[in-house]
Design a protein around this nucleic acid. Structure first.
Length: 210
DNA sequence: AACTCGGGGCA
DNA sequence: TGCCCAGAGTT
């Protein structure tokens, strides 16, 4: 995969979806942080159901602590891993207040210091809330990157580094959303929709599969 | 590197 | 019924 091919791929994805965004529902960096924290191994539809209620009950870190872990747990109990996530939400809000003045920090190291926030979550917040050039590689992006040849790697870290390095700068901020949506709806794990794919002719997977 | 958390959605 | 889902922390 050469650079002109990558440019063409992202040009097409951009033309089809000029203003991509996460499917998680949020308003502001704090809500996004909570939403992504809750989304581990859980579909965004399920997350949106509980965050809608949770944000109304607790729109700020202070309000979240006043609400308390029991109520948070009860509010999010319809999603997976809810006990761990409720504890992480409370612990993260405590850290936001005690260490970061109630604001969501804007560096990866600081974000990763928050309980329940790993590299992937930190990168999503950096990219989506703060528009910094970070790539958060999940299973969708890992699969799409390797199949198409946009960035091949044995682990997510390797793919992440190559994506940041190889994706043309003008596309990098939105590339996260294009790739993840492409992986979910077209380049699916089990039944890839190659016949409906915008970049079929540029993809190494298609070339190899047929 | 393997293990655990975990209810909902879908085949 | 079985398998997967926008992962992270612990051992």
């Amino acid at each position: 995969m050469n650079s002109s091919k990558r440019h063409e791929i992202f040009s097409r994805l951009q033309a089809a979806n000029p203003h991509p965004s996460t499917e998680l529902e949020f308003d502001g960096a704090f809500q996004l942080l909570i939403a992504v924290l809750l989304s581990a191994q859980t579909t965004d539809v399920a997350v949106n159901k509980v965050t809608k209620v949770l944000y109304a009950l607790a729109p700020t870190p202070q309000a979240m602590l006043e609400l308390g872990e029991e109520k948070v747990r009860d509010t999010i109990k319809t999603i997976g891993l809810y006990r761990t996530k409720a504890a992480h939400v409370i612990a993260t809000c405590e850290a936001l207040l005690n260490t970061f003045g109630g604001e969501v920090p804007q560096t990866r190291a600081e974000l990763e210091s928050l309980p329940g926030v790993g590299r992937k979550t930190a990168n999503v917040v950096l990219n989506t809330a703060f528009r910094q050039p970070a790539m958060a590689v999940d299973t969708h992006i890992f699969r799409v990157s390797n199949r198409t040849g946009i960035a091949k790697g044995k682990n997510v870290r390797e793919v992440e580094d190559k994506l940041v390095k190889y994706i043309p700068k003008e596309f990098l901020l939105d590339a996260h959303h294009w790739l993840i949506l492409h992986g979910r709806y077209t380049c699916k794990a089990l039944k890839p929709q190659c016949s409906n794919c915008l970049i079929e002719d540029l993809c190494e997977y298609k070339a190899k599969a047929l």
